[in-house]
Design a protein around this nucleic acid. Structure first.
Lengths: 215, 215
DNA sequence: CCTACCGATCGGTAGG
DNA sequence: CCTACCGATCGGTAGG
């Protein structure tokens, strides 16, 4: 009955990878988006990458190190997307709006990255060097833009960091609500997310109160 | 050697509870805040409540049902805190600010509740009736306040839901950044959180652009 | 609400 | 990068 067992071996594709490091990150992202964060285990990541569960330890000390790599990549990509979108914009107000739209769009287009970047996954975030560095870069884009606007007399004077926190809070809140599905199916995939982000950026600039310029 | 084993039994306090339901919710919150979300298992919750791991199933169908109860309670408490803080406030602008401050303070004072309320824990959020209902109540407070302000000619005209989304995004973003520790130790425990929320509410009302009333 | 049990999975390591 | 193994934990259920 079991005579032919060894004979009918199916090769079971094992990747003696070119780049297992990369494959593990990709597998993590796919796993999170398909089965949620709680399904993320090193063993399942290894399975998806086509290696044994001991292999990932050659590349990452533990799960946290893997997540840190994902988060760092996320911050880098987000900052790039912000720069790209800010470049063609005219004045500080347009640049600010562009940065916010880029932030929200990145989140809805890369929800797994976004969750890893801002979830409470790291015991000591400061220990993952690249992480804080890349995060600081993105925040720096915002700061610079606001500072320019203040110097031009376009934005209100005062503590630039306070303005930055406001702008960040707004786009981060919108992004979070969208990514976590709190707004229902609104903006899934980014169809409406851009319109929402544009309209909210305008509100941040002009304020909620009725003024001469506000209708 | 093992002769006295049975004799030295320590009673091991078992609660034949008055209210195990309540105790399980409290144990969940304590567990999340002490060891993080990934430590939340039904077995550990039962352990902390002093019962066997089979007991919780008498009160909750599964982990998701337990989380839904926590989230529902959170929305109810948050709405209550908003109402309380809005009541003594004067006009719509003050009431809006008060609601935002209450939102942020609730989050930093009850981070475990906040995480359960907005985390991606529910496969079908709409199946947990009380959840959407309580969430809707809180959002209703915001909507009503904005609507009153528009009718009084104080807030800019237009889609009230769009204004509400902006206000919500701002406070939700600030709350999330604080709760997830992204801002460092700033506002831990709520010392500075109130000041931040007040200042950001003002920015939302008056806008970022320089105008006659802005400095 | 408890005891006793099931199959399954996990993180991690030894040793090659 | 793999095989083989460790102790530990989990969700869930039967049966009382």
């Amino acid at each position: 009955m079991a005579a032919r067992k060894k004979t009918s071996t199916q090769p079971k594709p094992r990747y003696h990878h070119g780049d297992l490091h990369r494959a593990l990150i990709d597998a993590s992202l796919a796993l999170i988006s398909e089965e949620g964060f709680s399904a993320l285990t090193l063993r399942e990541v290894a399975r998806r990458a086509g290696v044994t569960h001991a292999a990932p330890y050659r590349h990452f000390a533990d799960k946290e190190a893997l997540l840190a790599a994902v988060a760092e990549e996320g911050f880098r990509a987000m900052a790039a997307q912000m720069r790209e979108r800010m470049a063609p914009a005219g004045g500080p107000a347009e640049r600010l709006s562009a940065s916010g739209v880029a932030y929200v769009l990145f989140a809805v287009q890369h929800p797994s990255h976004f969750r890893v970047m801002f979830g409470p996954h790291f015991v000591r975030p400061e220990e993952h060097q690249g992480l804080s560095a890349e995060g600081g870069n993105a925040f720096g884009l915002l700061l610079q833009c606001l500072s320019e606007g203040q110097q031009a007399g376009l934005f209100r004077p005062g503590d630039t960091h306070a303005l930055a926190l406001g702008a960040w809070s707004l786009v981060h809140g919108l992004a979070s609500l969208l990514v976590d599905g709190v707004l229902g199916q609104m903006g899934k995939g980014g169809m409406d997310a851009e319109a929402l982000a544009v309209s909210q950026s305008r509100m941040l600039l002009e304020g909620l109160l009725r003024t001469p310029q506000n209708g």
